[in-house]
């Protein structure tokens, strides 16, 4: 069974205060696609990611990962296949050492310790952070924390990676390094971001969200030069494309 594809149909979510964050959202993402999810603040990007991993449960519509419908019963299986990184890496790192933090997921899925060790070392190598394995997470720099938080998701060997603002609060060098790492992943990726230059670099496809719904879905290269659309959604051309003609 492949878990790499995602099918979301007519999804609705309203917060208890009455704010409708996701409103009739439908998309289909296939194996290995790298998708940027962009939109202004409050467009519903983070809510959508939370719905896809069952942190929030949809009030209407359905989410199908591979061939499995997302429900309370299927969550443990699906969460093993979907890795997610949060906007604030600090929220994701809670153990005493980087190694223990990355091993937390594989151990919860009761893998034997040899396998856990291989997963931890493999995940840390992928994000170029093996040298940090014995450090306490709270002593790492922002870029190192981000790399380790990605490793915590990778250690479960997920088919799909969801990332919420992965480049937020990174210095230019750490950001560039992270972009390099993301480009190497063969996973199906959905990256919610305001960093449109990164989106242009890493994602072939871009979905533009506004008021909880899809307003555009297409090739990143095309969307990033559609000034009318970007303006309407409180976005701007990526820096690298500013001053260029369509």
């Amino acid at each position: 069974m492949s878990h790499h594809k995602i099918d979301i149909k007519d999804l609705d979510y309203m917060y208890p205060d009455g704010k409708k964050a996701v409103n009739g959202f439908s998309i289909n993402i296939t194996h290995g696609e790298s998708v940027a999810l962009v939109g202004a603040n409050g467009a519903g990007k983070s809510t959508l990611l939370s719905l896809m991993v069952g942190i929030l449960m949809p009030q209407k519509g359905e989410i199908i990962i591979g061939d499995t419908h997302l429900s309370k019963e299927t969550l443990p299986l699906l969460r093993q296949k979907i890795g997610m990184t949060f906007q604030n890496a600090d929220d994701q790192l809670f153990m005493n050492s980087v190694y223990e933090d990355v091993a937390f997921g594989p151990r919860n899925y009761k893998l034997n310790e040899e396998e856990v060790d291989a997963r931890v070392i493999g995940a840390l190598k992928k994000v170029d952070a093996l040298h940090l394995k014995d450090r306490p997470p709270y002593k790492l720099s922002g870029g190192e924390k981000r790399a380790v938080s990605i490793a915590t998701a990778l250690s479960l060997d997920p088919d799909i990676l969801l990332m919420d603002e992965p480049t937020a609060a990174l210095d230019p060098k750490s950001r560039r390094r992270l972009i390099g790492i993301l480009k190497e992943f063969a996973h199906t990726k959905i990256i919610a971001t305001h960093d449109l230059d990164m989106a242009l670099d890493v994602c072939d496809r871009t979905i533009v969200m506004n008021q909880g719904t899809v307003v555009a879905d297409g090739r990143t290269k095309d969307i990033m030069v559609n000034d009318e659309l970007l303006e309407k959604c409180s976005l701007e051309r990526p820096l690298i494309l500013q001053g260029q003609n369509n």
Partner: peptide
Amino acid sequence: DAMILRGFDGDFRMGT
């Protein structure tokens, strides 16, 4: 949330 996303079910499992 970060804990349950990585399979936490209330039992803290240590390595060895």
